[in-house]
């Protein structure tokens, strides 16, 4: 993804983010209280949000991966997101669940939360950077500086 990029690459990423963020605000997922009301099983709206988003994205991925074309701004082919079940995926899910249940915050919704004026979310985002850095510290021990990571996801 480095080197000369199409002039519309960054604008397209920005517009995609804009719609994504507006959706997080519109659905109120940018409010930790509303996420918590789902986790406390008082309001199941979060499932509608995730379901709707998954449906639209899933249709796009199906459509894309059946078209044997290439994306106009990068020339890369259309793939779907793939991953494997390993101890990192299981343990990571467990730790994420602990944090999500405690606070009601997750990365995308936290970024959008800044945009609705919830500046105290910056404490949570600072925490996320600390947590991500700890993964970097831990996982770098098994990585030599010149060696690429075991699996380099382009999709997360």
């Amino acid at each position: 993804m480095t080197g000369k990029r199409h002039p519309l690459f960054m604008p397209s990423i920005f517009v995609g983010g804009l719609i994504f963020g507006a959706g997080l605000a519109y659905s109120q997922m940018a409010r930790p209280e509303v996420v918590l009301s789902f986790l406390q099983l008082k309001d199941f709206g979060l499932l509608l949000v995730m379901g709707g988003a998954t449906l639209v994205a899933g249709l796009a991925f199906q459509f894309g991966s059946r078209m044997h074309g290439r994306a106009p701004l990068t020339g890369t082919g259309y793939a779907r997101r793939t991953d494997v079940v390993d101890s990192d995926l299981l343990f990571g899910g467990l730790i994420f669940g602990l944090g999500w249940g405690l606070s009601g915050i997750c990365p995308g919704a936290a970024y959008a939360s800044i945009g609705i004026g919830n500046f105290s979310i910056l404490i949570g985002i600072a925490g996320m950077f600390i947590g991500a850095y700890c993964v970097g510290l831990w996982k770098s021990k098994s990585l030599k500086p010149t060696q690429p990571p075991a699996r380099k996801p382009s999709t997360t």
Partner: peptide, 24 residues
Amino acid sequence: HYAIGGLLIGLGITVIYLSTGIIS
């Protein structure tokens, strides 16, 4: 608001996917 917000989130991912091939 849950349904519309969810569709918008999916639409944002779709815009990036169809134009760049990136699933973000």
